[in-house]
Design a protein around this nucleic acid. Structure first.
Lengths: 127, 127
DNA sequence: TAAGAGCTTTACGTTAACGTAAGGTGCTCT
DNA sequence: AGAGCACCTTACGTTAACGTAAAGCTCTTA
């Protein structure tokens, strides 16, 4: 897959793909000087984009990607990554809970806001 | 409440509080030259910090705060803020759903990772 | 009275995650 | 041959959300 096809498929810019490559998050092969993205690259990009939506930094994402690819390193390094992922899980669950609360609150606020709009329109009409 | 007490209560720096004030997110009164934070300021700060945890920008948060305080402005301006909040709600719900998926996936990955650690330890022991 | 603690303002510095412009290469189409 | 893509590299620019340093008030405590 060419870089342009990747951009359209994932709705990202070419700059972004090259940036991720520079950060060693993806490693497309070269055909001449052009980049070719494999299925593996696409799977990794998908994970990167999801991670971003949850507020993970690219550095954190890089560590999680290591976990997915059973690192190439030593057991201790791998254990460290495992711990990081566990901590992130706790954070994610807490975040979801809090998000649920915020959603309910915002819903209530919207009902209230709707009421405000109606009375405001009545007032405008009366003037 | 003094600025120092606020910092300890909310675990933020004084710089952050002054920064939020410059952005007109909170407006503490002055006693001489010192800032004094009211209950209202504390409520707003709480909302600001929650918003941040969900990835809202300070500018978006400022708009949501307007909603909470029924703006002082015109109906059209208020209606616009109302629309923004409705859009954010949709995003938040989608985000929660996606977060749930990611949580389950990460859980599975952790089970798998745990298994990896065990076999790696066996391998280490065998060497 | 001198030192410190705690607050203040002003203003330049920092980091992440790209955007954007400049200039170059290689292939194809006319 | 020249024009035009589509890609490349290099490198400076940008924005948000503060950090941090410098310099100055005010009150109290040794």
């Amino acid at each position: 897959m060419s870089i342009r096809e990747m951009c359209e498929a994932f709705d990202v810019t070419a700059r972004t793909l090259r940036f991720y490559e520079a950060k060693e998050l993806i490693s497309p092969i070269r055909e001449g000087q052009k980049r070719l993205y494999s299925k593996r690259d696409r799977a990794r990009l998908k994970l990167i984009l999801r991670g971003k939506r949850f507020g993970f930094s690219l550095e954190e994402i890089r560590q999680l990607l290591d976990l997915y690819n059973h690192g190439g390193g030593q057991t201790t390094q791998y254990a460290r990554t495992y711990e990081i992922a566990k901590e992130r899980l706790v954070v994610m669950i807490a975040q979801r809970d809090e998000l649920s609360v915020a959603i309910e609150e915002l819903k209530e606020q919207l009902v209230w806001g709707e009421q405000m709009l109606k009375t405001a329109q009545l007032k405008d009409a009366a003037e």
